[in-house]
Amino acid sequence: MSEAVERFFASLPARAPAVLRTPTAGTLQIDLATGNRTEHWLIELRPGSVQVSRERRPADATWTSSVDLFERLIIGEAQGIAAVFRNEATFSGNVVLFLAFRRFFPDPPGTRDPRATARAQAGRAR
């Protein structure tokens, strides 16, 4: 498994209070494949907290993709829902859990808050 993926999962518990502010709760299994090998991560989501483990047990939802795609997700170069639509990844179970989890992924490079853009445009129009 890549160091970037390991760091991403290790950072989740510290980032959870700022990211998970909704009442979403459940378990999400992330399966990352490379060649003939699949790594498993179990993410327990609760409002304001995350627990990460490598154990395998039933989960409320499962995300499966290549390690390469997941690395692109964690640096903002890919979008999870688009990857499912393009059949680059699969998802089953409670979609609300993935929608909550994807908040941990960064915005694509160069993305700007549309409110800031509108304020800048309004300031130039005066």
Rank of each mutant, 00 (worst) to 15 (best):
E71A: 10
R56Y: 01
S53C: 05
F104W: 04
I81R: 09
E88H: 01
Q29K: 10
T27S: 14
R86C: 06
L69V: 05
R86S: 15
F101N: 00
T38I: 15
L45C: 03
G110H: 07
G48W: 10
G35Y: 05
T117I: 15
Q51I: 14
G76F: 14
R21S: 09
S66C: 07
A10R: 12
A89Y: 00
W63T: 07
G76W: 14
R126V: 14
E88P: 01
R119T: 10
G26V: 03
V50S: 03
E88F: 00
R57E: 03
A10H: 04
I75M: 05
I74F: 08
R126I: 11
E3T: 12
P108S: 13
F9M: 02
Q29V: 07
A61I: 06
A61P: 03
E71D: 07
R21H: 05
A78M: 06
V96M: 14
I74D: 00
L73R: 03
T90K: 13
F98Y: 14
S66N: 05
T27P: 02
F105C: 07
L99P: 01
N36D: 12
R21T: 14
D107Y: 12
F70G: 02
D68I: 02
T34H: 15
I43S: 04
R119F: 13
R102S: 12
L97A: 07
E44Q: 13
A16D: 05
F70K: 02
Q79I: 14
G110N: 04
A16S: 09
D31H: 11
F105I: 10
H40N: 10
F85V: 13
V50W: 01
A10E: 11
T34V: 12
R37L: 13
S2Q: 09
A120Q: 14
V52D: 00
L99W: 06
V67M: 10
A14F: 08
E39T: 14
S53V: 04
G35N: 08
I43C: 11
A122I: 08
S53L: 04
A18F: 07
I74Y: 05
I81Y: 03
G76R: 09
